[in-house]
Design a protein around this nucleic acid. Structure first.
Lengths: 114, 114
DNA sequence: GTTCTTTGCATAGCTAAGCTATGCATATAT
DNA sequence: ATATATGCATAGCTTAGCTATGCAAAGAAC
């Protein structure tokens, strides 16, 4: 499947996926699909998380203890896996926000010298 | 060698290395060591490029045609490899700046919803 | 004058992480 | 009926940054 790019699109910048997911979950528990939709909507369609990125990332986050998950019914015959931020995940979010901000400011100093 | 982190330090965010190097070279030709110093200085010591990241990246940039290089004398018995931006590299810089800016704005919308 | 730090280049091997492609299944709209 | 949206998941690929290591000249410190 070629990246058609008939429309300009930005995949998520490497290293920011955890940050985006953690921030999304900080507003309340959500399932995978909902997380992707939320990020797409808030970013005004700029950031699109591929499923092949999202689900493995959520697995890793479970292992790291940043989130927990439980299956819920999403219809008579549908299940959805809802993820919930743990206290450790909330701490991680704070760290990632601060690291991200610091790094972005540094990059701006390089690419836009005063 | 452990990352001692007695002092907070931010390694470069993945995906931004080309951008940083291209921007640095846009001010004029420079050798590898000088590129790293320039980025460290402008970022106020926040961004530190490891040699194991820098030199391979420069090799890839040569292959991509974004830079050319030539050996110069840097002392009676010293050589330094100076890199120079090509027109293609300049185009790439513009692309990377715009992609980066667009993505960062999108991320800010997610992590700081209005 | 020897040792430490800085300047300078480079590679091998590891690992993290995102992507493409694929598969499965239900629900809704056309 | 069939296409689109909702929903989860994995295998395999590739990129790219990092650690560790090696070499070597120049300057500073003692």
């Amino acid at each position: 499947m070629q990246r058609t790019s008939e429309q300009k699109r930005t995949d998520i910048p490497p290293g920011t996926l955890y940050l985006l997911i953690l921030k999304t979950l900080s507003a309340g528990p959500l399932h995978g699909y909902g997380i992707a939709q939320h990020i797409k909507r808030l970013s005004e369609e700029v950031l699109r998380i591929e499923e092949g990125s999202l689900y493995p990332a959520l697995q890793r986050m479970l292992v790291k203890g940043w989130v927990t998950s439980e299956w819920v019914q999403a219809g008579p015959k549908r299940r959805a896996r809802v993820y919930r931020l743990t206290p450790l995940g909330r701490k991680q979010l704070a760290t990632e926000v601060s690291t991200f901000t610091r790094a972005m400011e540094a990059i701006m100093r390089v690419i836009q010298p005063a």
